[in-house]
Design a protein around this nucleic acid. Structure first.
Lengths: 129, 129
DNA sequence: TCTCGTGTATTAGCACACATAAGACACGCA
DNA sequence: TGCGTGTCTTATGTGTGCTAATACACGAGA
């Protein structure tokens, strides 16, 4: 069984769906630093997908610093190194802007957006339904 | 001159960049309901792009309800009809989730995220640099 | 009515991304 | 040595994005 939940859906590229699933699993604490990351061929078989497609996701995740490769051994969830406050903001800012534009175009009040953000934030910590 | 600022960049599809630019312009009040929307061929020439590509953006924007087509006459920025509170939330929720996951993976404190959101929110109303 | 400027649809061709397939290599470990 | 890793290579098929060149239907105005 894969340590990150993922139901493949048409529309988005498969390798990006894998990346997003891992991101989500790490963010929710479902996977922690040092955890073993499944083998490329294992994930491929589990998802019924070509190993090359999974490999692309692994390359992406490595570039993002989310997982580390131990040559000849395997992959592990990376230990996050602390970065400058400004660097974090720069990475997140585009998403913030898109969110604000979208919510405003939906005619959503700013307070309602803050409420929604708060609800989803708490929901992220206890998704054990 | 186009009523929405846009510098084409490689990476994202052109037609999506147009859609995003219009979304942004509407959200910031740069374009308002009832405003004339430039002709397909005009935008195409202004951006140095094929009319068919712009047409694709127009189709998208029409489907999103952001602009209205008056046959044989032209396009206009649509008047937003009020929708249910829950519908708005449903439209924005995926973006909220992605933002939360991303900020957490960046090791960003929740308070810092709220601060960033607030800053970008006010900045959205006075972008007249 | 005729002309012009709209949006829209069609067909074709090219480039690129995505995904698959099958095979090969270098590495670390038992 | 053998096995399980990640990684690279080549090839093929499919779909999307973009361009190109037309053509059509519609409404407004001369």
């Amino acid at each position: 069984m894969l340590p990150f939940p993922l139901k493949l859906q048409p529309g988005d590229p498969i390798y990006l769906q894998i990346v997003q699933a891992v991101k989500s699993a790490v963010a929710t604490g479902l996977m922690g630093p040092g955890d073993r990351f499944p083998a490329v061929r294992t994930i491929a078989q589990e998802l019924g997908v070509n190993p090359n497609t999974v490999q692309k996701a692994v390359t992406e995740l490595t570039a993002l610093g989310l997982i580390e490769v131990h040559p000849g051994q395997g992959c592990y969830v990376a230990v996050r190194v602390p970065v400058r406050r400004e660097a974090k903001a720069a990475a997140v800012r585009p998403l913030v802007r898109r969110l604000l534009i979208e919510s405003r175009n939906q005619g959503m009040a700013h307070e309602d957006l803050l409420d929604l953000l708060q609800r989803e934030h708490t929901k992220l910590d206890e998704p054990r339904h």
